[in-house]
Amino acid sequence: MSGDNATTIVAAIIALVMTALPGPASAQEYPSRPIMLTVAYSPGGATDLQARIVSQPAADRDYFGRPMIIVNKPGAGGKVAWSWFASRAQKTGYEVAVYNLPHVLAQSIALNADYGLDTLEPIANFGADPAVLAVSRDSSIETVEDFIAHAKQNPGAVTISGAGLYVGHHIALLQLERAAEIDLTYVPYPGAVPALTSLIGGQVQASFNNLSDAYRSRDRLKILAVADLDRDAAFLPNVPTFLERGIDIDDSSVNFRGFMVPRGTPAEVTDVLAERLPAMFHDEGVLRRMREGGASMRIMGREEVQTLWQRHQAALEALLADLGE
């Protein structure tokens, strides 16, 4: 290669790289470039998959006209991503994140995390996955009442698995212990599927798990009750809620998933998101894919989801304060 040729190649490459650089940011209408969507869990997990499904039509002219690009930042049960998002994400509307409701607030309360209601602003909710109480198919327990009676006879000796600390399953367990005045032994697993497997394999006696995951394994389980305000009509219409059975467990443990921005993002940007996100979640393709994926949708707009966060913050503070000292 002669020197001159090399210089030409270098010049060509530099020119190529320059054209790939983003142009000067002009005051164009939002959004003028792709939006980053931070997911706090690994690719292939339930949160990641649902985020990919609901954000897929973003590039459509009807919604944002720009794609949403998923950035996975897993670690420490969501703490790594949310902590980064609350403190270091740009407040421009180009940095959006997926929240998992009881996790994000419960961690902020219980672990003194540096994120929470003051630093995060929810915009729209797309999914809800309630916690269900399940026992193995071979168990002699048939109903919630049986379960509570069994736990009262064996205080502290009933093991119950869930997907980690300060996630929906853990919250549901704390609520059940308080409401039924029983004492259970919680065994945290690194995810919902391993927690469910531990029940199927007979390692633990019961599990609080995702409705969607339990539904998929329903042949090997007995699902006793749903920790939500209403029954799940689509997947488990015959399983009662705890409330129906007179046990005071509300929807604090339901795993709500939706989009949020860091607080301080300008209103003209959040208005656009608040208007178009629910519309995008109602997209026919999104609804179909979510249904095929066995995930239930619960779409809420900005006002509704912000009320939800406020209500849950209060409920979780009360619950976790009881638990502490």
């Binding site: 998959l49 095929e292 994926g293």
Partner: peptide, 16 residues
């Protein structure tokens, strides 16, 4: 574990 995600996204649930 990542492959599991690939299955679910196509509505293929592990099991019999």
């Amino acid at each position: 574990a990542v492959l599991l995600g690939g299955l679910l996204i196509h509505g293929l649930f592990p099991g019999p």
